[in-house]
């Protein structure tokens, strides 16, 4: 029988996307713990071309939500995963090289797991205006946001039903 680290495996099984979050504040130290986990994500060539930015400012969070049609929760914090296309080009990557986007996914998976470890709910969002998000976050033009991970404590009263299974 295959030896399994039950704690790790059960954590994977138990994780859920949190689409309804409470208004309980998330302290910056906890957000920092989640963000620091990004550097442990598997990453092609260890080039780290996917910078992550934590957003804890209430005004910026509200603005991000306004330009994110896919953001269902009202988060207390967020982490934005981008691709640094400037640095990617310096390595010779074409602008839409699939590997750059794959590594957005590996960072996202790692952040989601870290959030779970910190007792936070999390919800990935890709339906948002990248152009507007870049402006709100004052990102350089060569840094393009591709995913927002909403963070917050799950609302104990529940949330909308999960998306239907394919």
């Amino acid at each position: 029988m295959t030896a399994v680290d039950r704690a790790v495996y059960d954590a994977l099984r138990a994780r859920r996307v949190t689409r309804r979050m409470s208004d309980r504040a998330v302290d910056p130290e906890t957000v920092g713990l989640v963000v620091r986990a990004a550097k442990f994500a598997p990453n092609a060539g260890n080039r780290r071309l996917q910078p992550v930015v934590a957003v804890t400012n209430g005004t910026k969070l509200r603005l991000l939500r306004l330009i994110s049609p896919g953001m269902i929760p009202v988060p207390q914090a967020a982490v934005v995963i981008s691709i640094d296309v400037g640095r990617a080009a310096s390595y010779g990557f074409p602008p839409r090289a699939p590997g750059l986007y794959v590594d957005v996914g590996t960072v996202a998976a790692t952040l989601l797991t870290a959030a779970q470890a910190a007792g936070l709910g999390a919800c990935p969002v890709t339906s948002f205006s990248r152009a507007a998000a870049g402006r709100i976050l004052n990102l350089p033009e060569t840094v393009q946001p591709h995913m927002i991970i909403c963070l917050g404590y799950p609302d104990p009263t529940g949330g909308p039903p999960p998306m239907p299974k394919p």
Binding site: L66, S127, F128, S129
Partner: peptide
């Protein structure tokens, strides 16, 4: 919401 949804 409408403007950014059009782009998304």
């Amino acid at each position: 919401y409408l403007i950014t949804a059009a782009r998304a």
